Simulated assay, not measured.
Amino acid sequence: MRVGRFRHAVAATTLLLATAACGTSQAGSVQKELRYQGSVGAVTFPELAEELGYLGDIKLKWVGNTTSGPQDIQSAATGQTDFGGAFNGAIVKLRAARAPIKAVIGYYGADEKSFSGYYVPEDSPIRTARDLIGKKIGVNTLGAHHEAVIKEYLTRAGLTPAEIERVQLVVVPPVNTEQALRQGQLDVGTLGGILKDKALERGGLRPLFTDTGLFGPFTAGSVVFREAFIADNPEIVRTFVTGFAKAVHWAQTRPREEVVAKFEQIINRRGRNEDPSTVRYWKSSGIAGPGGVIAAKEFQTWIDWLERSGDIRPGQVKADDVFTNAFNPYAGRSAS
């Protein structure tokens, strides 16, 4: 992300936060209903936790579906929802914009079963990072997971900042990425999950690189609350994170078939006019830490990257200020 675009986002976010502070404060209240955004055709871990009875007397209130991680955490930061989740680098950037948010648990990641790849047609002349100069790469959104992974790939390959600027990132809905790639509208397409699996089944594509190839298994995104909400409702947050963590652990340790069956059951019950078949392609949570425990390196990696790129000042954001494992019962079982 260019520095100018980032500064514009900072200004807009600061204004939104100021507006939210005037009208959405919940100081002194105890809240048992938590507003959130879901995802079409997918089950979030809070939804799984509620279905498994892990949230106690906390009720979830679905207010719609998110369009992206950055949008989801901005909704939480401005009080439109009570919690939201995004790529850890996006959380760092929002924190740098002085958003009073804190990550409390990891919710997605990449491993050998669940990862994102950056694919080209089999006959493409693109073989190395340097071949990407002047080319178009399709991503689902800017300023999030895929942009960070791509920029890291290019940096590790020795491209200069000026050369990296010449690699064009094009926002394409994930469902359209494969078609745009095959029709030559993109030189590289970002594919993950069911869309990746279906595209590879059809053949004719090869990976240029993958996120796990760069970083190994890692938790990539976390769920955040506003710090004021945590201060006013610590036991609600503790109950929520505990239930969330138990749901993550359940998915990490149960047979895949059992997890998929539960996801299908939840989607069929909630009545949002969705196709439950997509969850049949679920392979793993991708979350590295047991029960979603956050490791400091899962933020520090992106803090370092954002400092190198000039998006944040050195020392502007510290990992320990961005996240906490204090509410996660699995924290003692993993280094953080």
Rank of each mutant, 00 (worst) to 15 (best):
N273R: 07
F218S: 11
A319S: 09
V223G: 09
K318R: 12
E298W: 00
N325S: 10
F229S: 13
T253Y: 09
G310P: 14
D232W: 07
L205E: 13
G310I: 00
F244I: 13
K297C: 00
E298R: 00
G204F: 04
F263P: 15
F225K: 06
D320I: 04
V241Q: 11
G289A: 04
K318D: 14
K318Y: 07
A251I: 07
G332D: 14
I294F: 02
T212N: 08
F218L: 10
R206A: 07
F240Y: 15
R280P: 05
G213L: 03
T239L: 00
I312F: 03
N233T: 15
S309E: 13
W250E: 05
A220T: 06
T324Y: 06
R254A: 14
R280Y: 08
A296Y: 03
I266F: 00
A331P: 15
G291Y: 00
L208V: 10
K283S: 13
K297P: 07
A335W: 13
R272D: 13
D320Q: 12
A319F: 04
D211M: 01
R313L: 09
G204D: 10
E227L: 03
R270Q: 09
F244T: 14
Q316K: 02
L214H: 11
F209M: 09
R269K: 11
D321G: 14
K246A: 10
S309G: 01
K198D: 15
G332T: 12
D311R: 01
K246F: 01
A326T: 15
W282A: 08
V223D: 15
N325F: 08
A296Q: 08
A220G: 09
G204P: 00
H249Q: 12
K246T: 04
G271P: 14
A231W: 05
G243Q: 07
V317H: 01
T242P: 14
R269S: 14
I312S: 05
G289Q: 02
V322P: 15
V223E: 14
K297Q: 09
E227Q: 11
G332N: 13
T324M: 03
A220K: 01
G213R: 02
V317T: 11
A288F: 01
G204S: 07
Q300P: 07
E227C: 02
L306E: 09
E264R: 09
